[in-house]
């Protein structure tokens, strides 16, 4: 079984720092990690390989330093890595990113299964997975929280608002996964050694056969036109420690007025 895992390197901090002048993210000096959900996708791929044999390829589009993220995946047990780096990719929106990833999957494939995270912690769009599936013409599912092999495909559980939906998808297909799917394993020493020895080919735009107009800023459908800071404020009636009873009375009056009680 041949499995591709789409991974993204994201900033390592919950409290992302901002440049107050430009409103952009301060990346300097920030650590970078593999997007947490992508590690769940990788773990699922490794588990399937254990069960059915085969090969796991991790693919990322990003700056040259994203090879660190691929190395980490190799040391967890992935067989191959593919790094897509090119100036022409800069400024890609989710659609332009998906075009690059779909082309890369085609080049490195064919694959039976493509896995991705449900969303990345930096972009938080959750769009790249389904977009890539559409461009590959593959059936796909999302919010996958359980997964098992079935005859000619996979059975998945999707966690949605009101419960769990079960679906069957034939190979080849693409899935985006949730944290609940599994517990990613730690890199092993042997894995780290092997990862150091494994060569990660660097692919530019020419080698995946798409044109510069299709990707980067020019190949994107959307444009960011403004960045602003949310300003939310209300006039607060404050009650300190000594006036809590008064505050509670005030609240009860409001709740009564609003017909809540």
């Amino acid at each position: 079984m041949k499995i591709a895992v789409l991974i993204k390197q994201v900033p390592d901090s919950d409290d992302v720092r901002m440049d107050p002048e430009t409103g952009t993210m301060v990346r300097e000096g920030m650590g970078a990690i593999v997007n947490p959900l992508d590690l769940n996708a990788l773990q699922a791929a490794l588990d399937l390989r254990s069960a059915a044999g085969g090969e796991v390829t991790v693919i990322t589009m990003g700056p040259p330093r994203a090879h660190e993220a691929l190395r980490e995946c190799l040391s967890m047990g992935a067989d191959r890595g593919m790094l897509l780096t090119d100036r022409a990719f800069a400024g890609s929106d989710t659609w332009a990113t998906a075009k690059v990833l779909a082309a890369a999957v085609k080049k490195a494939g064919p694959f039976d299964l493509v896995l991705a995270g449900e969303k990345a912690t930096d972009g938080e769009t959750g769009q790249v997975g389904p977009e890539t599936a559409a461009l590959l013409g593959m059936p796909f599912s999302t919010y996958v929280s359980a997964l098992s092999l079935a005859d000619g495909g996979v059975e998945v559980a999707r966690t949605v608002e009101e419960g769990i939906q079960r679906q069957f998808l034939p190979f080849p297909c693409l899935l985006t996964v949730l944290h609940a799917l599994n517990e990613p394993s730690m890199p092993t020493l042997a894995g780290k050694k092997r990862a150091r020895r494994t060569e990660i080919p660097l692919e530019g735009i020419a080698s995946i056969g798409i044109s510069p107009e299709e990707t980067g800023l020019g190949g994107s459908a959307t444009r960011v036109v403004k960045i602003s800071y949310p300003t939310i404020s209300r006039t607060t009636e404050m009650f300190d420690e000594k006036r809590i009873d008064e505050g509670i009375e005030r609240l009860v009056a409001v709740l009564r007025d609003m017909a809540v009680i």
Binding site: R234, E237, F239, E241, I248
Partner: peptide
């Protein structure tokens, strides 16, 4: 508290 209409501090 900045987005609250009523604040109970304690």
């Amino acid at each position: 508290f900045r987005v609250a209409d009523l604040g109970l501090c304690g």
